[in-house]
Design a protein around this nucleic acid. Structure first.
Lengths: 225, 225
DNA sequence: TTCCTACTAAGTGTTTACCCTTATATCTTC
DNA sequence: GAAGATATAAGGGTAAACACTTAGTAGGAA
């Protein structure tokens, strides 16, 4: 039986090396390359056409969403599985919108990683247990093909209006609704409506999480400790 | 030759399982247990007396510093190697002050993890390349033994106590006081007191500003893409 | 011992955030 | 002109954060 050819794109060396090791140890898989750089991942994929890419969403210089969308162009046969510490549905959706076929978090089990690779390789979509539990329905997503891949990769911030973006920047600075209202010369109630809409659109439940999402978009990578 | 007996304490299941796998694959090592809970790590160590503990510094309900200090009491022969995403010297120092004998980041190589285990097992102190490059001199540290272990887990970080640091990290993750109370098994009221004290000590007026201060000090890496 | 710090947790407020609905005016766009 | 999106802002509600106080316990230090 042919081994499934895998590319690992993950910026933490220890994780990248251990995953390479365990996948190569399994007779079903072979890691054809690994890299810590997302641009490199796209280049390598274009040359080696791996069947599967394990793609961390926190990478330089492109984030996982952008790298996934580009990868779909240079190597359409390659299937991407998103990998991250986050189970935030926003990231999951963004990865699928970018053309990913699977998503697992680092709270998944080792067996779950195998399952994900096998499922995606055989043409299925896959998300891990942790994300399923949040009520995410992978089959309810619009089908992603060459016609619309990448079109939704900016939908999070893109769906925020100018005012919402402006206000979210104020929130990020630690300003209260009262402060924002004063600064923008609008009613506190208006600010509150905007806040609510921002949280709803970005699917977070409080301002701290909002700021985390905003930071992750603008190039901050959040580590948890 | 006797295998080196290892306990892995790491909250991300996928990482925990892959490390268990690769260490068990190597004839020099055997993973006697692994867990995602720091209290459990202390309990297990007390029973199994592993020679080495690989301890992630981000754990619940104790952080890595506290777990390491307690471990020194219940299993003095056990040597702890700190593991984290951070090369922040503050965290490295705190871990050594808590009694750790080694520290590697997740940017270390797989071979470096082996080296660390072997070095620490043979009685040396060890820090990875990445930390060495920052000019950290492990041998310049005061010697840690039963008389002073834990005494230096103090106020280098803006005079926040261990509990306050732990709670501020929970806040950073977007958790509410209710969530934090549940996770740490303490009263919401206690969490609120800590929150209040944290804000007062760091001279900020809300959680978003707190997170900004925490991010500016450590843990966040600004990427440009 | 006494002192000090940390952790715990209660009480009692005020303020802010967040949820949901309704509504008006303006603007583009089909 | 109708439809849709945006910005505005109000009312009424719950939940959470924040402010301040008191107080018991535990442990180490003086």
């Amino acid at each position: 039986m042919e081994k499934i050819r895998i590319l690992i794109a993950e910026d933490h060396k220890l994780i990248r090396e251990t995953w390479t090791f365990i996948l190569n140890t399994d007779s079903r898989f072979t890691v054809v390359a690994s890299c810590s750089d997302s641009s490199e991942a796209v280049e390598i994929a274009a040359i080696k056409n791996p069947e599967i890419v394990l793609m961390d969403i926190n990478m330089m210089p492109l984030n996982g969403f952008e790298a996934t969308a580009r990868l779909a162009i240079v190597s359409p046969e390659t299937k991407v599985i998103g990998l991250s510490f986050y189970s935030e549905l926003l990231f999951v959706k963004k990865m699928f919108a970018a053309g990913a076929k699977g998503y697992i978090t680092k709270n998944s089990g080792r067996e779950e990683m195998y399952e994900a690779i096998l499922a995606v390789h055989s043409g299925d979509l896959y998300v891990c247990e942790e994300i399923l539990k949040q009520g995410f329905d992978v089959h309810a997503l619009p089908v992603m093909d060459s016609s619309n891949i990448g079109t939704l990769t900016d939908n999070s911030m893109g769906s925020l209006t100018n005012k919402e973006i402006q206000i979210s920047q104020c929130i990020r600075q630690g300003l209260r609704s009262k402060d924002i209202a004063g600064r923008l010369s609008i009613s506190i109630k208006t600010v509150e409506v905007h806040r609510h809409n921002i949280l709803r659109k970005l699917q977070v439940r409080n301002s701290v999480s909002l700021v985390n999402v905003l930071n992750s978009k603008n190039g901050y990578v959040k580590y948890s400790f």
